[in-house]
Every structure is written in C-alpha cells, then in structure tokens.
C-alpha cells in the first residue's frame, strides 16, 4: 500500500542521470542507455533499471523485459575473475560442456551467477574465433586453450591467493 522506495547512492544516481541525458532521455535509446549503464556499474541491478525507467519515462517492467531478453545484459555483478567457456560448435564438439560442468561443480554456482565471495562468475560464450584451441576458456583477459575437465582445478588454483 505504501509507495515503493528505490535506494541509490548519490554519486551513482548522478552518473546514471548523465548517461540518460547523453541520450536525450529518449525512450528509443533504451538499449544504448542500458549498455552504457552496464559499462559503468558492471551489471544492471533493479535500482539502476528503476532510475533508467523514470528518466526515460518507460515502465520499469519494459526495462526489465529488455534486460532479460538480451543475454549481454546481466543483473548480477560479475565476479572479480569472470570465467567464460566457449560453447561454439568446435568447442562444444571437443567437450566444452564437460568443462563448463566442472567449473559449476567446483564453484557451486550455475551459469550466469557469481560465487558468494564475489571472486568468480561463470558465463557461456559464443565462439571466440580461437577454434584451433578448442575448447577455450577465458578467465578475465587470460585465454586457456585445449582445456580438459581435469584441468579446471589447475586453472582455478592460479587465482587462489589473488
């Protein structure tokens, strides 16, 4: 019955409003605004979507509809080391799925989510064009080629003390 309150930090709000303004608060630019916002915050939490909705004068349900429709938008913060496993055809054929499963098993999070310590997040990835190295895994900016399921532990070990 009472009004819905959306809490935001002052600086974040200011930045977001600037982004919206840079697109003239044009509802037709919704996707671009969201893209830019995700660039700043790393993800699109509900509060960010609320502000975008208010500034662009579109229903927040619509904004959420767009965010959930496009896979490049995410509502959960990515981990410090985002892990991407290529699921393009070549990688798939060479067992990328098993590698992905192994990451999920060890880190105990599904695809699209982040470990509770905020360190890792897992995502599937379309072909990265490194098919010669299939299956390919990216951790942050670092590329690992010809990864087998039993190599997953070793990769994660590299980040243990970081």
């Amino acid at each position: 019955m009472s009004a819905i309150k959306i809490k935001l930090r002052e600086n974040d709000l200011k930045q977001l409003k600037e982004v919206c303004e840079s697109f003239n608060n044009d509802p037709g630019e919704l996707i671009n605004v969201l893209h830019k916002a995700q660039g700043i915050f790393g993800y699109l939490p509900a509060e960010v979507q609320e502000v975008v909705a208010q500034e662009l004068k579109v229903p927040v349900a619509k904004v959420y509809g767009v965010v959930t429709f496009y896979s490049f938008f995410t509502m959960v913060p990515r981990g410090k080391y985002p892990i991407s496993v290529c699921t393009g055809t070549a990688c798939y054929v060479r067992g990328a799925e098993k590698v992905l499963d192994e990451f999920k098993r060890i880190l105990k999070v599904p695809v699209g989510e982040t470990t509770s310590d905020g360190k890792f997040s897992i995502a599937g990835l379309r072909c990265v064009g490194a098919c010669g190295l299939a299956p390919v895994v990216l951790v942050g900016d670092k590329t690992y080629g010809r990864v087998a399921p039993d190599g997953v532990k070793e990769i994660l070990k590299e980040y243990e003390d970081k």
Partner: peptide, 9 residues
C-alpha cells in the same frame, strides 16, 4: 500518494 520514490542512500 504512492508514486515510486528514488531516495539517496
């Protein structure tokens, strides 16, 4: 009044 409010945290 039940308008959505954006408040500064």
């Amino acid at each position: 009044g039940r308008a959505r409010q954006i408040v500064i945290e």
